[in-house]
Amino acid sequence: MKLSKNFTNPLAANNPVIVQILGICSALAVTVKLEPALVMGLSVTFVTAFSNLIMSLLRNGLPSRIRIIVQLVVIATLVIVVDQFLRAYMYDVSKQLSVYVGLIITNCIVMGRVEAFALGNKPWDSFVDGVANGIGYALILVIVAFFRELFGSGTLFGFDVLARFGYTNNALMLFPPMALIIIGCIIWVHRSINKDLQEK
């Protein structure tokens, strides 16, 4: 019961991007096309899941004075692992993501979950929490990228969709502010469904 709530909570009611407003930087930068957005989402999921798992395993022997440094080393290692694999096996996507893979290290979601959850919970719970938060992030990225690619380039995953209906691409969708506007719209819809999130 608790485990399933751990998993579903970050997907909607406590989504890291649209409720906690974390990880916005990369949400703006890598959502021009669906493919890099999806890869970015999966990379972050991998990093949050395993940094949570590893830090949860280490939590009892961890000297609290160097807690943050150890977290950074673990997260940075995982990010480098992801980056190296992308360069080797998904070269084109890694070129599109460029510095943003490395910047996962600074993504507040990752360190936030380690601090807030993994250091006080058992490994399996922490792993599930990491996966769920990663997916919650990926979900928003994919939704934003869906609209930006569809209306900005007329394609989805590179396949022509709107172009065949004589649609003229809207270059405005390709600029970063549009990602912020779409995220704003998602937050709006989300809050009108979850009334308890609305401030009085």
Binding site: T77, I80, V81, Q84, F85, R87, A88, Y89, Y91
Partner: peptide
């Protein structure tokens, strides 16, 4: 860990 990984993946990355 990282040194091993980098050495192992280097040929594939260079080929790319």
């Amino acid at each position: 860990l990282l040194a091993t990984l980098a050495t192992w993946l280097k040929p594939t990355q260079d080929a790319n």
